[in-house]
Amino acid sequence: MSTPNPTGSVAGNGLKLGVLLMATPLLLWLVLLVLLPHIDLLMVSLRERISYGKYEFSFVNYIEFFTEPLYWNTYVRTATMSILATALTLLIGFPVAYYIAKVMRGRAKNVLFLLCLIPFWVSELVRTFGWMILLRESGVVSHFLQWAGLVDGPVEMLYNDVTIMVGLVYTSMLFMVVPLVSVLDSLDDSLIEAGYDLGGNAFTVTRDIVIPHAMPGIASGCIVVFMLTLGNYLTPTLLGGKSSLWFTDQIYTQFITRFNWETGSAFGFLLLVLSSFIVWLGLKLSRQTLSDTVG
C-alpha cells in the first residue's frame, strides 16, 4: 500500500478543472440546445389543452397517433422508405467509395473525391429544384423523351415514390461515401491481395475481407444517412408533393398549420424514439458498437 501523494491529487484536481472548463461549451450546447428542448417537447406532448391557457396531464396526443391510421401509416412508411433509401445509398455508395479509395491513385483520386463534394456546394433546396427542372411535366427529361419519339405526350415524373427515393439517395450520397472512403483507405492492399492469393474471388474477398473491415464505416454512414433521411422535410415534400406522406410533414402540419403544439411534440418525440430504436437495432444486428462506429 502506498500513501496517497498530496501533490499528485492537487495536480489531478487541476486537471479535472481544466477538462471541465474545456468541456463547458460542449456541455452548454448539449444542455441548452439538445436536452432542454427535448424535455420541454416531452412535457408539451404529455398535456391536453382544456381551455385557453389551461392544460392537463394526458396521453391523448399519443392515443390520437395510434388511433388515426393516417398517422401511424405515415410513420411506418417513413421508416420503411428511410431504411430503403439507406440501403440504396449504401449499395451505390460502396462501389463508388471502393473505386475512389482502392482503385484510383494520386491526383485522380482527389479529383474524384472532390467531384462527389461539388453538388453540396449548392443548398439542398437548389439541388432539389434541379431535380424538379429535370423531372417535371414540362421538364428536360420529358422534352427529351418526346423529341426522341419515345412518348407521345408530356410525362410527369414528379410526385411518386421512385422520385422521392432518387432525391433522398442523391442528397445522402456524400454522407455515405465519406466514411466509406476513409475506412477503405485504411485497408491495406496486401489484405485484398492475400485474399485472392488464398483462392478468393471478387465476391468472397469483398464478403470476407473488405466488408468486415469496412463495417464501422458502413455503420456510421448508414446511421447518418438514415437519420438525415428520416428527418428530411424538403426533399419528400418538393419531389413527392401531397402524396409524399412523410412523417416530418405531419409534424410540420401539426405545429404550423394546425398550431397544435401538443400533438406536434408527441409526433416529434415518436420520431426520436423511432430513429433511436432503428439505429440501436441496426447496430445490434451488425454487431457494431456506437464507439467503434465513431472511432
Binding site: 491495406d188 496486401s190 489484405l191 491481395e193 492475400a194 485472392y196 492469393d197 488464398l198 483462392g199 478468393g200 474471388n201 475481407i209 468486415p212 473491415h213
Partner: peptide, 20 residues
C-alpha cells in the same frame, strides 16, 4: 490463370493477416 488456379501460396511482407 487467377492466383487460385496456379496452386501458389504467398507470404506477404506485411503478413496480411486478417485482424477480424
Amino acid at each position: 490463370k487467377t492466383p487460385k488456379d496456379r496452386g501458389i501460396a504467398m507470404v506477404f511482407q506485411s503478413y496480411a493477416l486478417y485482424p477480424h
